[in-house]
Write a protein that binds this DNA or RNA. Sequence first.
DNA 1: CACAGGTCTCTTTTT
DNA 2: GAGACCTGTG
Length: 744
Amino acid sequence: MDLSMLNDNQKLGVTTTEGPVLILAGAGSGKTRVLTYRTAYLIEEKHVEPYNIMAITFTNKAANEMRERINNIVGHGSNAIWVATFHSTCVRILRRYIDRIGYDTSFTIYDTDDSKKLIKEVLNRLNIDPKRYAERMCLNVISSYKNELINPEKALLDVHNKAGDDTVARIYREYQVMLRDNNALDFDDLIMKTVELFSKCPEVLSNYHERFKYIMVDEYQDTNTAQFELIKHLAKRNKNLCVVGDDDQSIYKFRGANIYNILNFENNYPETTVIKLEENYRSTPNILDVANAVIKNNTMRKKKTLRTSKQEGDIVNFIRCDTSYEEADKIASDIDKMARLSIYSYGQSAILYRTNAQSRLIEERLIAETIPYKIIGGTNFYSRKEIKDIVSYLKVVSNPYDDMAITRIINVPKRGIGATTISRISDYAYANNMTFREAMGICDEIGTLSKAASAKVLKFFDYLEKLSEFSKTSLVSELIEKIIEDTEYVENLKSEGTEEARDRIDNIDELVSKVYLYEENARANEEEISLDAFLSEVSLVADIDNLEDENDVVVLMTMHSAKGLEFPNVYIAGMEENLFPSGRSLGSPDEESEIEEERRLCYVAITRAMERLTLLSCAQRFTRGQVSYNAISRFVKEIPQDLLNGNVWEPKPRESDVSTNVSDFYRVKKEPVSAKKYKVKNFGSKINKAPLDYAVGDRVKHMKFGEGEVTLINDGGRDYEVTVDFDTAGRKKMFASFAKLVKI
DNA sequence: CACAGGTCTCTTTTT
DNA sequence: GAGACCTGTG
């Protein structure tokens, strides 16, 4: 096998196939490359069956890419390799064996929303004041319990030993009971229950030992204790475990990531071969210097120095703006300039920020400049109301114990079954130890219900029974089409006639196409088409998974989402104290380590840039409906001035200037484009070239520029480029799918 | 029982 | 500023 394009340490990483291996891979040092070559090497040179190889990645996107790249090297056979994320790995295992630890294999996966609702219900049942024990807090605590593999009994014991407040532990216990009753697992359960399964059923684990002879884990610095134990179980017999990570890029402590998994790997696996990849192939020296200047302020890290042999490149820019509007404007016009000068196309540019909320302003600006973009994250496609509604119907069919799904749709569409009726059934079910659905079936025996109410409930109950019956002989696509038809969901939206309703219909259409796509893939891979499999897939997609790179659009996302990606031209917005580092980390009990985590995040963000990097910061921004004034982020100040183009020590904005202007400024700027109205969805997933209903010479209307006359239409391949002479705004050139011009 | 309108709280980051 | 939650009315 030809390994000539690898450096010495990379080669070592590829060819050291036996025993535990720790690859410490700095940002941009080609670790994905090592992992793919290593896999190919195992197959081609060591004649390992693809079937015996397992690779765990952080996102589905990374998994797919890896599979594709292996295919390119090996030619074929990569399909049999188990490449998946931790969560989807566990789902696959649990769908097979979870009945051995007391669940049904058609379990439902609860997302954060569902978990929150369930907690609410728990607080209700236990008569606990939600003001004193906020749902969010409870969920966080429960999540950390699970990530540390602490079950409710142990949690209670621990608290009692310390004579502390046992409320949250009791909430945890009840929460687990209710999950169990609903035959549901939350995200953390997926890992925890798999570990439990392996501990309790050695014969199951043994099956997997037979199968997984070589195991690789990517982004190892972000694994938590439960994931560590999972891997430990799996690697126990064969010991061929290769983990890749970078302690400087550990940014998921809030999700339970345990940095000691990587720092102490050698202690846990004494015969470990340690390989360091320190040559960076991504960024220019200027960018690397900036990254190193920041990260060197962290104390808890394995020392390493990234080298590069690249040309020096552009100096990193720092821009201090007066307001967040100016910041958005600066970014948009710079991107526009770069594209016009053909230096960086839209698709080569990315905008990163600390919080999702920051995207709105930038988005509005991009729309105004007709720059195509795609936002990653924020509200997940599957958390939209209409999608959750329809998916809940599917969930009810798949898992009849899922009370949460039933109560969600019992009155969607309106069936005249209100909150009172629901809680009466629910109480009855609870008191008589039955599921909500069972109680529905005998609701004429529930004394508290009126005749009229129980008739409506029974009718819905019968419908669900019919639907379940139908599903036994139907494809998922047939089922979903039937549900949409029966419920008249789309019909009802159509009659609303609003733009919002239109959006929702689009989303439902997209959901339906996802079903067909799933079926197509399943057929291609010769897998059985199953509702459960589709639902698992739906529950575990990350937004980033849908990022395709064929489309020439600017990408906006949080720094967390950006991990593992790279872009020639990067903007990091909001380099301000209180925002980045986050106000949460400031003044917290372990401020020191929280800030170090923020600093690692900053390092991750900076090292996404290949050639050009711009940092931005503003003196004032709107947060929570209020203007806040923040100092320049300490991370910027950690960068030596001579590495930056732009003054870090600029005087503060004149309070007198800004504060009097603020309200005016915001009033003027606020009204422009409503982002929602304009929002162009799916730059990525669809071809946007719809036939135009206007032609040269027609009068058209644009949401922002007003009315004008079309003077030129160019077929740009993927989209039409339309030139319009606006009455007031002058001549503008824009892409048809983004401009949304309406003929008048 | 549904819905409109008012009040309150709150925000990191994600599978 | 948004979303969750509560209250009063039809």
